[in-house]
């Protein structure tokens, strides 16, 4: 069952035209087509977009006086291209998590629209592992399948969950309870749970913020490996610039609910994309340092305005 699903899914992703090389199956980011799309999103509705956001605004009650409205997301246009890794960076309160929740469908828009032209499934990795403490690891991982396929969960769901655990190398803890795992293991289980539905779009909400640096880079490497394997689209929210650079193709700088800049990530292209790249090595490259400066300048600029 799992392998069937998987091969079907692979076939579908291979048939998406036209890619440069084998990986990734997307338009090169520097192509005029894509640049045009980014700069004038309303002119072309790209069939390659995984997510299309137009004039999206999210308002909350809040502010100093009763009846005041706060715009968490303010008239945002954004396209997430199928297969790319997009990082949303910004200070706390800039609206990046709200935007991610809009993409996930967990947050209603006050106005505007957010579409998923690909109509594939979406998974979400929370900042906390958010495992159900009363379920064993394997049952936590199979939960999304249980919720989606109301009829036939059971053995097939267990198989798929086992395979997903294999991918995060945690098969051997399948029958443990979450409290018996370390923080990093819990996070990997949480990633396995996101993978089990074979998502086209993986949303990560500061997933490694609570972990130590070493674990953070290890898990970053894991996400990169999985992305290379499965070619899903990633939207990553983080306030950590280094992480954003290491795990993205584009970096989107947000401030006050608005998109301040969308920057192509030169570092991502510097490595050999067919092989797994150690994030720590990437961080030593001069391109990394240069781009780090660019992103942090934009952030400071936005905040200073």
């Amino acid at each position: 069952m799992y392998w069937e699903t998987r091969s079907k899914w692979l076939r579908r992703s291979q048939s998406t035209p036209p890619g440069v090389g084998i990986h990734p199956p997307v338009y090169p980011l520097w192509s005029p087509f894509v640049l045009n799309l980014i700069q004038n999103p309303e002119t072309i509705s790209s069939p390659k977009a995984a997510v299309t956001i137009r004039q999206a605004t999210v308002e909350f009650a809040g502010g100093r006086r009763a009846g005041d409205r706060v715009k968490a997301v303010d008239n945002v246009d954004l396209d997430v291209i199928s297969g790319e890794r997009l990082a949303l960076v910004g200070q706390s309160g800039c609206g990046k998590t709200t935007l991610l929740r809009v993409i996930a469908g967990l947050q209603q828009l006050s106005s505007g629209r957010c579409e998923h032209p690909g109509r594939g499934s979406t998974s979400f990795v929370f900042q906390q592992p958010a495992l159900l403490p009363w379920r064993r690891v394997i049952d936590n991982v199979s939960l999304p399948l249980e919720l989606q396929n109301r009829k036939h969960a059971g053995a097939a769901a267990k198989d798929a969950a086992g395979a997903a655990l294999d991918e995060v190398e945690l098969r051997d803890v399948a029958s443990r309870f979450p409290y018996q795992l370390s923080g990093g293991m819990k996070m990997r289980v949480s990633i396995a749970r996101a993978l089990v539905t074979r998502p086209d779009l993986l949303l990560l909400d500061e997933p490694f913020a609570a972990l130590d640096d070493l674990l953070r880079t290890q898990l970053g490497g894991l996400v990169t490996r999985l992305w290379r394997l499965h070619h899903f689209t990633i939207v990553l929210v983080t306030h950590n610039i280094a992480e954003a650079i290491a795990l993205s193709d584009r970096v989107c700088v947000m401030h006050n609910g608005q998109i301040n800049a969308v920057l192509d990530n030169p570092v991502a292209r510097s490595g050999d994309e067919t092989e797994s790249v150690d994030e720590v090595d990437v961080r030593r490259t001069p391109e990394f340092a240069a781009f780090y400066g660019v992103v942090s300048d934009r952030l400071r600029e936005a905040a200073g305005r």
Binding site: G105, L106, Q127, P144, T197
Partner: peptide, 16 residues
């Protein structure tokens, strides 16, 4: 909240 979000994300029914 994360648990609720998780259930909403995968379209869980009220009963589920």
């Amino acid at each position: 909240t994360e648990h609720r979000d998780l259930f909403r994300l995968y379209g869980a029914s009220r009963l589920q």
